[in-house]
Amino acid sequence: MAMTVKPWQWGNVPSHEMATPVKGEVVPKLMKAAKRPLLITGGEALKEKWGDKPLIDFVAEVAKIGIPVIATADSYKALRDRGVEPAAIMSVADVTNRLQDPAWSIDGKGSYDLVMYVGISYQLQSQMLSTLKNFATHLKTMSLDRYFHPNATFSLPNLKQDEWEQVLNNVVKALKS
């Protein structure tokens, strides 16, 4: 874990402190350790690939395992078509705004402890992670996209497409086991 990683967008250097880059096998461990995880997905999940499927299939798999998903942008319909009813449909700014409040959650059962983003355009996601890093210090955040997100607490490093797909495969496998 002593990797030093450049932000995916080279210019996106927010601070001397950046996300802890995590290896693929650590991701499901963090997810399993979380008591109140939340996964936020967006429009890029319809465009990015996970093997021969769109990334939204990965999100649907995670949702079926029991992690609540919030569908932002136009990701809802694809999830529903895969048999998943997300916990909420919101814009990513709306959900991030509410996550600053430790008392807020969709189910009213108190704060989340691990908020994950996947399939949301890089810059918008980076800005949302910045909000939570600075104004929701009660939360841990993680990006599951294949780009290193310096504003997250944990982020995958910049991965090649096949490496990243492998990580996501392992996440699904580990969560199911």
Partner: peptide, 23 residues
Amino acid sequence: PFYAPFCDYCCLCTYGKCDLSKG
């Protein structure tokens, strides 16, 4: 106002750069 800082520092005067992150 909902803020999404683009940079955690301020570098507008010679006291800086000041790290303003996380409170």
